[in-house]
């Protein structure tokens, strides 16, 4: 399997990462070397093997549906935001 430039640009778009044409070419070559390594997996017969999503097989814990964190830390959290105002995070206008 080998990625072409269009595919690299498409993946970058999906990942929300800007990529210049020069970067795309180098990225394609590096990614293709990595995919050559990954390709070994395709030759393995895994019929009937259950996928292992986690290191330890445990089920999710449940807890009562009640508020546990009662201290309002809004100001502390927003103090480190690039742009916040009146308790809101500011971003460029998305609705005209």
């Amino acid at each position: 399997m080998s990625l072409n430039l269009d595919q690299v640009e498409r993946i970058a778009r999906l990942a929300h990462i800007e990529i210049s044409p020069a970067e795309a070419a180098q990225t394609r070559d590096r990614l293709n070397a990595i995919f050559d390594l990954i390709e070994q997996l395709q030759a393995v017969n895994t019929a009937g093997i259950a996928p292992m999503a986690h290191a330890v097989d445990v089920s999710q814990r449940l807890r009562a549906d009640v508020v546990t964190e009662t201290i309002d830390r809004r100001e502390v959290f927003q103090a480190i935001a690039p742009e916040a105002e009146a308790g809101l995070y500011l971003v460029p206008r998305v609705i005209e």
Binding site: A15, H16, I17, T27, L31, I34
Partner: peptide, 21 residues
Amino acid sequence: RKSRAQGFGEEVKRRILIGTY
């Protein structure tokens, strides 16, 4: 796009792209 392109280094971007794919 620009924040992520400028904020992440090359190896991190590479792995994000592999993962996305």
